[in-house]
Design a protein around this nucleic acid. Structure first.
Lengths: 207, 207
DNA sequence: TAGATTGTTAATCGATTAACAATC
DNA sequence: TAGATTGTTAATCGATTAACAATC
């Protein structure tokens, strides 16, 4: 299958979460306009995304929730498990760990790292916190392919380099500095301050 | 001045952070291509963004860093202070608080809220954690205009409603559920799981 | 000056939406 | 059937990039 647009991937991930919630509520079908309303987008958008992944509802009675989850999962989830590590085990690292462990079958958080000896050696939700000194060793050994960076700004670029050297192929950068990565390494950055500033701007300049 | 595109606002916020870092390094000028490289975008992009805000460098020796910071700040920062609250004082709420307090002169984090009596009454970085029961009272009293949601999923929509009822005009939603807000309230959502899934997808389907 | 850089228009690209035929 | 919904093409919108004149 063709590589899908970034935005579509994002939305598919979000649809799935919503669909899983719907299942809990014993719903079996959902209309495109319902999904759209929940996500504050148009129904056409939803239908187009679903068209992209090649699913068509046999009836015009909305999409079969279970089926749609399956199809989305087939697209989004990796065939084989991907191992993930969190670098920096402060509040943010802990929040991500708690939030993420066990949520997605094929994305396994298998290690966290920190420089502070008070944190290393501890275990949260079954994940051990290793010393940053052992980064290369553990990343290689556990074949970790994705690193989530939550270290202080001054350490960000250096840690990114270390991760890449150790074989990581994707980095999610939550530090407040911009980092760079070579071709072949997928880099995604998110900064909270930017989001807050953006909200503040549009609160004042209403959209 | 006209309302700028969302993407431009985001980038301006990021440029400023980079520029502030540059100041620390005693740099006085920066070329568009330097800024571009740091942010993994093109120099044209940078120049266009800067064109948008109407700044022009008098010399062709790069942008004056101090000046550019001033101009960006004039666009992004609110004239008067805006008060902000964090709802949900778990790891994520704490991370945001620690990260954010005192960073931007006109964005003041003035309260955090939690339901857990163990957390309420405590104070972090000078910010008091109030009981969620007092949400309306405090939001009104302190004229809080932006709420950052880091509560558990099941409480998200309800909290959003309570915030809006109390007069909040912008919400930054970090919960894993999609919430809705009426016109006049600017809503921005970010979900970490989606980002991780996206990175995993593109690690496998290399862009 | 020649070379480098900026500012800006026009062209391109990608993503969203409008329109509508097909289907239940 | 009539009404509602979906799937899909074409049109639109917005954001990025190419091209290049202007400037130092």
């Amino acid at each position: 299958m063709k590589v899908l647009p970034e935005k579509t991937i994002e939305r598919l991930s979000e649809y799935r979460r919503t669909l899983l919630n719907c299942l809990d509520e014993e719903k079996t079908h959902i209309y495109s306009h319902e999904l759209a309303e929940i996500h504050n987008i148009t129904a056409v958008q939803v239908r187009r995304d679903i068209m992209f992944i090649g699913y068509t509802s046999p009836q015009r009675k909305g999409y079969d929730i279970r089926e749609l989850i399956k199809v989305i999962s087939k697209i989004i989830d990796a065939r084989e498990a991907i191992n993930v590590a969190v670098i920096g085990f402060g509040h943010l690292g802990k929040a991500i760990t708690a939030y993420f462990v066990g949520k997605r079958p094929n994305l396994n958080l298998v290690a966290t790292f920190d420089i502070d000896p008070k944190r290393t050696g501890t275990s949260t939700a079954g994940v051990t916190c290793y010393s940053i000194d052992r980064l290369r060793e553990i990343i290689t050994e556990k074949e970790i392919k994705i690193g989530i960076l939550t270290v202080p700004p001054h350490a960000a670029q250096e840690m990114a380099k270390a991760l890449i050297r150790a074989g990581v192929k994707g980095i999610l950068n939550f530090t407040s500095v911009s980092i760079s990565a070579p071709d072949g390494v997928y880099l995604e950055s998110y900064d909270m301050i930017t989001s807050i500033e953006k909200v503040a701007y549009f609160v004042k300049h209403k959209k």
